[in-house]
Amino acid sequence: MKKAIAALVPLTLIGAAPRGAADGEVALSSAMFVERAVADAHGATRIVLETPETVTRGDRLVFVLSYRTVGDRARSAFTITNPLPRPLRFEDSSDPGAIVSVDGGRSWGALATLTRRDLSGRLRAARPEDVTHLRWRRVLPAGEAGSVTFRSVVR
């Protein structure tokens, strides 16, 4: 089944700081890629990232969330919170300090520390398919930029 790209892009992070942004504000942008296995001229397979037009069930997507401070003032505390669209199953993050939510953003922690109730009401360990949001915290010196990435699979 093909899925529309617009439904998968984390809309809360698209765009940059508005024109005339205050000194110390943070500009954000996001990009989404699909991983594809491609055979080279010698028959060796390598993984490439492509900008997708459509995605299908099982496609592995890579999201790159980029940030930078605007102006000459540092940000002592900056948090990126990214909802994970329901058609995606979380796989991993590039940042070992990333935390996740499995309850729509009400509580946060490392995936291994979170729990969910199963259909019978019993607690079980949270799994990657339970992740609803991802979060990263940063301190941004003036003029600094960076990015975080996460991978997901189309359900």
Rank of each mutant, 00 (worst) to 15 (best):
R46S: 15
V48G: 06
T51Q: 14
A44P: 11
D40T: 14
A77Q: 13
T79E: 15
R73K: 14
T81F: 03
R73P: 03
V48F: 05
N82Q: 15
S66D: 10
V70F: 01
H42W: 10
V62A: 04
G58M: 03
T54E: 07
A39V: 10
G71M: 00
Y67M: 04
E53R: 14
R36E: 14
R36L: 08
V38Q: 11
E50V: 08
V55A: 03
V64L: 12
Y67P: 15
T45Q: 11
G43Q: 01
L65C: 09
V70H: 03
S76D: 08
V55F: 02
P83T: 01
F78D: 02
T56P: 13
R60Y: 00
G71T: 04
A39C: 07
F78T: 00
P52T: 09
S76M: 02
A74Q: 06
P83V: 00
T79Y: 05
R46W: 04
D40Y: 06
P52V: 11
T45G: 13
R68W: 00
D40R: 08
P52C: 04
A77F: 12
H42N: 14
R75N: 02
S66C: 08
T51L: 11
T51V: 14
T51S: 15
G71A: 00
F63M: 04
R46Q: 13
A37V: 09
T79V: 04
A41V: 06
T45V: 14
A39E: 12
V55N: 00
N82F: 05
R73C: 04
A77I: 13
V48K: 05
L65Q: 10
L49D: 12
E53A: 10
R46M: 06
R73T: 14
I47Y: 11
R75A: 07
S66A: 14
L84G: 01
T81G: 08
T69V: 10
T51D: 12
R68L: 06
P52Y: 06
V38C: 05
R36A: 14
S66Y: 15
V70T: 04
S76A: 10
R73S: 10
I47T: 13
R57H: 08
E53L: 09
R75V: 04
T81H: 06
L84I: 03
R68S: 10
V48S: 02
P52R: 13
F63A: 01
S66V: 09
D59Q: 03
V62H: 09
T56W: 11
G58N: 12
A44Q: 10
H42S: 13
R68D: 07
V55P: 01
F63D: 04
L84S: 03
I47L: 09
V48R: 03
H42Q: 14
V70P: 02
R57D: 12
V64D: 12
L84R: 00
P83W: 01
R57Y: 15
F63H: 02
A77W: 05
A41N: 15
D40Q: 07
L61I: 05
A37Y: 03
V62S: 03
V70Q: 00
T81S: 12
V64F: 07
D59I: 02
L65G: 06
R57F: 15
N82W: 07
S76F: 07
E50D: 06
